[in-house]
Amino acid sequence: MKLKQHLHLIDMLRGVFKDKLCPNTETPSLSLCWRHGYQVILSYDDDMSLAYAELWPGIEYWWADTPDPKDLLTYLERQKRNGRPTDAFFVAGMNLTEDLRYVLQHPLQSMRSMTLRACGYLLDWIRKQQPGPASTALNIIAADFVGDTEFIHIVIALNQSCIK
């Protein structure tokens, strides 16, 4: 992207999220975010982020790049044992990825159906996670196709466990 495109995108994102953006001034806790009404941590993976208090630099995002949910969870557990990838966040990508072999073996299946079929297995793992400041704690869980699942309720319950 050229400079003008970066500036346009950043202005658009800042305009959409406005006061909901958590500034990159301190590592946020859930209580800090709730106290100030922050709902969004906006990571912008370009040096342009350094010029804006509302933008966080690129946050490492780990996903296993596999169609197999067991391989995905094995990968994430290994990453957790290694500790947080950055000083602030551990981002667990619950995303399954189709590869050529998978597509050829399942020509009538979509990425959505693949993900939803594994949803129960992945949600069970999420329920067992511990949020918080520990080096192996999850802080951000990202997933595809969460609208039809319990995902949101589970993540909210994990967040509420931090303030009890």
Score class of each variant (00 low, 15 high):
27 T>A: 06
27 T>Y: 09
28 P>D: 02
30 L>M: 11
34 W>T: 15
35 R>K: 10
36 H>E: 10
37 G>A: 14
37 G>T: 12
40 V>A: 08
40 V>G: 07
42 L>P: 07
43 S>Y: 03
45 D>P: 02
48 M>H: 13
51 A>E: 12
51 A>M: 11
54 E>N: 03
55 L>Y: 01
57 P>L: 01
57 P>D: 00
59 I>D: 00
59 I>A: 01
59 I>K: 06
64 A>C: 07
65 D>A: 13
67 P>G: 03
68 D>N: 10
68 D>S: 06
68 D>L: 12
69 P>H: 05
72 L>D: 01
73 L>M: 12
78 R>L: 07
79 Q>F: 12
80 K>W: 05
82 N>S: 15
83 G>C: 01
83 G>R: 06
87 D>K: 07
87 D>F: 03
89 F>I: 12
89 F>C: 04
89 F>Y: 01
91 V>S: 11
91 V>H: 06
92 A>Y: 05
93 G>C: 05
95 N>R: 03
96 L>R: 04
96 L>W: 00
96 L>T: 00
97 T>A: 07
97 T>I: 14
98 E>Y: 08
98 E>S: 08
100 L>Q: 09
101 R>M: 14
102 Y>R: 07
102 Y>F: 15
103 V>M: 12
103 V>R: 15
103 V>E: 10
105 Q>I: 15
107 P>T: 00
108 L>T: 15
108 L>F: 09
108 L>A: 14
109 Q>L: 09
109 Q>F: 04
111 M>P: 13
112 R>C: 05
116 L>I: 14
117 R>P: 09
117 R>N: 14
